[in-house]
């Protein structure tokens, strides 16, 4: 920065004529950000925090009111833009980059560039597996098969995590079945049976849903606050949401709209228990046989998905 001769005549408290570029200043020469600026920045940051929450809620409201599904990228773009603005404000003022040596800002920019490279190229691969040839497309078993979780090793056990055998099911399904089995046992115990029969299993399932819906969702214990999601969820599972006791599959071709909300890589939303509505013997252990893929619906009737039934 060039100082003209006028600067010397102007009473400028920060200017030292022996050191026009300010390199040799003592610490008093460092920029002290005014309290007013700091306060303003805080208020702006708080405003943006409220804004990002409000916009997110607004999107939910739009979806609920107009029964549309907004694409996910909208949510991401809005949230990340606001977060970036907030981060820039924190860096520039709270961290003082705006008044600091340019080098520190350059370092931060290089760092951001490295992060972008990292995210960008990793996503290019994992987001485009089947882009050229289907040979490389990944068709994972949703949630995994639990393979290897039940490995037993000889000698001392040092694995800190629980060792569970999920019999080829994803862990979510395994836990659900565990709970259902437990409820069925409770029902059986009520009738003095040691082994649950079909009626007990059915009663257990009803209890599962009753608890989930009445005691959990309705009482607000479940943070699933999106009205339309709850409706879609339960309807897709075959529950008319006014009467939880009627278990009756609902034919809802329009539910494809729900799946359309997700990018290509997603499979259909399965709801809580994909095979819960199949006939009594449908809780088979071979979850991977039912592996839903991108183009496969598992809300279909059992006859369509599993010829064995």
């Amino acid at each position: 920065m060039e100082h003209s001769i006028d600067d010397v005549h102007t009473p400028n408290p920060d200017f030292d004529p022996t050191d026009p570029h300010g390199h040799g200043h003592g610490h008093h020469g460092h920029h002290i950000i005014s309290a007013r600026t700091l306060m303003t920045i805080l208020l702006i940051l708080l405003f943006f925090t409220v804004l990002t929450v409000a916009l997110s809620r607004g999107e939910v409201w739009i979806q609920d009111t107009f029964h549309v599904i907004l694409p996910q990228w909208l949510n991401v773009i809005i949230a990340m833009s606001i977060a970036t603005v907030k981060a820039v404000l924190v860096c520039a003022y709270f961290m003082g980059l705006r008044f600091d040596k340019a080098l520190n800002s350059i370092i931060m920019l290089i760092c951001v560039a490295a992060v972008i490279c990292f995210l960008f190229f990793t996503s290019i691969d994992l987001g485009n597996r089947g882009a050229v040839s289907q040979l490389r497309a990944t068709v994972p078993t949703p949630g995994g098969t639990g393979y290897g979780l039940d490995r037993t090793y000889d000698g001392i056990s040092t694995a800190a995590s629980p060792r569970i055998s999920t019999s080829g099911q994803p862990i979510t399904e395994f836990r659900r079945n565990e709970k259902l089995a437990q409820l069925a046992m409770t029902e059986a115990a009520k009738h003095g049976r040691t082994e649950p029969n079909e009626a007990d299993v059915a009663a257990g399932e009803a209890e599962f849903w009753r608890y989930y819906y009445n005691d959990y969702v309705k009482k607000g214990k479940h943070p699933h606050r999106h009205e339309h999601d709850e409706q879609n969820l339960f309807e897709s599972l075959g529950f008319a949401h006014h009467d939880t006791n009627v278990i009756e599959p609902v034919d809802r071709p329009d539910l494809d709209a729900v799946s359309a909300s997700s990018p290509n890589f997603s499979y259909r939303r399965t709801g809580i228990t994909p095979h819960l509505l199949d006939d009594g013997s449908s809780h088979d252990a071979h979850g991977d046989a039912h592996a839903p893929s991108a183009n496969e619906s598992h809300d279909a009737t059992p006859a369509e998905t599993d010829p064995d039934h």
Binding site: G144, I171, T172, R176, I272
Partner: peptide, 16 residues
Amino acid sequence: PGTFFSYPYAHDPHEP
């Protein structure tokens, strides 16, 4: 997380 997941009402198999 992971194998510690024991919540029976999960909506999606990838929730862990």
